[in-house]
């Protein structure tokens, strides 16, 4: 049981998640979109840890460790893909990558 209410922590996690979602939707630069996905991962991890701390269990922290490992793997592959995309198209604007539609 924490000193601050669990609801406040969950609202914070929800707001951070929505900020990340907003970033994915409004940005066209793919680096910013990847950063926004990181924000969303982090918000989910925050919700896990706060819920785990509320019940005094270690499971929430275990879940955050898994989220960390997954985010690391995702960022490594995603940045390699962005480098390939820049090498092929000379841009990181996602609106310019529309060869499949043409």
């Amino acid at each position: 049981m924490s000193n601050f209410p669990l609801e406040a922590g969950m609202i914070l996690a929800g707001l951070l998640f929505l900020a990340g979602l907003y970033g994915v939707m409004i940005r066209r630069n793919i680096i910013f979109m990847l950063m926004s996905v990181e924000i969303m991962f982090n918000a989910a991890g925050l919700a896990f840890v706060l819920a785990g701390a509320h019940h005094g269990q270690a499971d929430g922290q275990v879940m955050l460790i898994f989220i960390l490992a997954m985010a690391a793997a995702e960022v490594a592959v995603g940045l390699a893909l962005i480098l390939q995309m820049y090498k092929l198209n000379k841009t990181i604007d996602t609106d310019a990558i529309s060869q499949l539609r043409d």
Binding site: L50, G60, L64, I65
Partner: peptide, 15 residues
Amino acid sequence: VIFFISGAPFVAALE
């Protein structure tokens, strides 16, 4: 910091 004050210092360091 939020992790730290909610009783999860290990995960705060990992973060």
